[in-house]
Computed example of a mutant assay.
Amino acid sequence: MSSHASDKPRIVRLDQPAQPGVVDHPRPDRLEQGNPRRETWSLYESSDGQMTAGIWACEVGRWRIVFPAGKDEYFFVLEGHVRLHDREGGLVDVQAGQGGVIPGGFEGAFEVISPVRKHFVVVERPQKS
């Protein structure tokens, strides 16, 4: 059996693509402030579909988020400022040059204080019944 270069794992750089990303808005039932335009460039997906990485940009606004138990997100803010609010009233600011993790099971609100662009890595593990 011969091995081809395309069969081997390769490094993927997360460069800003020249083409537009996928545009959406928060679900209306989750909006708390504004109706921000969000744009996502998914630049990598693992062969098992459990990990996705890319670039995300968003306008100012705030909406509720609910992460399932098996979904974690690491992100690094390239530009702008985000604030994550937990259900108990605590908050964490993450600004350009800083990263953060949203753990599985997190419930709260995601707020964009100033227009943001970030790298993201989302890992979704199957949950056992």
Score class of each variant (00 low, 15 high):
residue 24 D to I: 07
residue 68 P to C: 05
residue 124 E to Q: 03
residue 79 E to G: 10
residue 45 E to C: 12
residue 33 Q to M: 11
residue 5 A to C: 09
residue 1 M to W: 10
residue 64 R to A: 05
residue 103 P to W: 07
residue 83 R to P: 05
residue 31 L to I: 14
residue 77 V to Q: 02
residue 43 L to K: 08
residue 81 H to G: 03
residue 77 V to R: 00
residue 10 R to W: 02
residue 54 G to W: 08
residue 125 R to I: 11
residue 102 I to T: 03
residue 12 V to G: 06
residue 62 R to S: 07
residue 128 K to E: 11
residue 113 I to N: 01
residue 17 P to V: 04
residue 100 G to V: 02
residue 112 V to L: 08
residue 42 S to K: 15
residue 118 K to Q: 12
residue 101 V to K: 03
residue 9 P to M: 12
residue 68 P to T: 12
residue 50 Q to W: 08
residue 92 V to R: 14
residue 38 R to Y: 13
residue 13 R to G: 04
residue 14 L to D: 09
residue 79 E to L: 06
residue 101 V to Y: 01
residue 68 P to Q: 04
residue 77 V to K: 00
residue 118 K to N: 10
residue 106 F to R: 03
residue 67 F to W: 06
residue 59 E to C: 05
residue 62 R to F: 00
residue 107 E to F: 00
residue 12 V to D: 09
residue 96 A to M: 03
residue 76 F to Y: 13
residue 116 V to I: 04
residue 70 G to N: 14
residue 60 V to R: 05
residue 76 F to K: 04
residue 89 G to N: 08
residue 113 I to R: 07
residue 27 R to F: 12
residue 1 M to S: 13
residue 21 G to S: 06
residue 20 P to A: 15
residue 126 P to G: 02
residue 7 D to F: 01
residue 76 F to M: 03
residue 66 V to M: 05
residue 27 R to H: 09
residue 125 R to A: 09
residue 20 P to E: 15
residue 33 Q to L: 15
residue 70 G to M: 13
residue 60 V to Q: 10
residue 69 A to E: 13
residue 94 V to K: 02
residue 49 G to S: 09
residue 29 D to M: 06
residue 96 A to E: 04
residue 41 W to N: 13
residue 51 M to G: 07
residue 5 A to S: 13
residue 84 L to K: 01
residue 4 H to I: 06
residue 39 E to I: 14
residue 67 F to A: 06
residue 61 G to Y: 14
residue 39 E to C: 15
residue 46 S to G: 01
residue 55 I to K: 14
residue 39 E to H: 13
residue 108 G to I: 00
residue 94 V to H: 01
residue 62 R to D: 09
residue 39 E to L: 14
residue 63 W to D: 11
residue 108 G to V: 01
residue 35 N to R: 11
residue 21 G to R: 06
residue 40 T to C: 14
residue 17 P to R: 03
residue 72 D to I: 12
residue 52 T to F: 09
residue 38 R to K: 15
residue 69 A to S: 13
residue 44 Y to V: 15
residue 17 P to F: 03
residue 129 S to W: 08
residue 75 F to P: 12
residue 77 V to W: 00
residue 27 R to G: 15
residue 17 P to Y: 04
residue 90 G to L: 07
residue 117 R to I: 00
residue 114 S to A: 11
residue 42 S to L: 12
residue 57 A to V: 04
residue 85 H to I: 04
residue 40 T to W: 05
residue 92 V to D: 13
residue 59 E to T: 00
residue 85 H to Y: 08
residue 6 S to N: 08
residue 15 D to E: 11
residue 53 A to G: 14
residue 73 E to F: 08
residue 20 P to L: 11
residue 63 W to G: 04
residue 129 S to M: 12
residue 125 R to G: 07
residue 107 E to D: 01
residue 78 L to H: 05
residue 53 A to N: 10
residue 96 A to Q: 12
residue 59 E to I: 02
residue 11 I to F: 03
residue 78 L to I: 09
residue 84 L to N: 01
residue 75 F to V: 03
residue 100 G to F: 01
residue 115 P to Q: 13
residue 52 T to I: 12
residue 14 L to G: 08
residue 113 I to E: 10
residue 57 A to H: 04
residue 97 G to M: 05
residue 74 Y to F: 11
residue 64 R to C: 06
residue 68 P to F: 03
residue 65 I to M: 07
residue 111 E to S: 01
residue 20 P to Y: 12
residue 28 P to M: 08
residue 99 G to M: 10
residue 118 K to W: 04
residue 102 I to A: 05
residue 126 P to A: 07
residue 101 V to W: 02
residue 7 D to P: 06
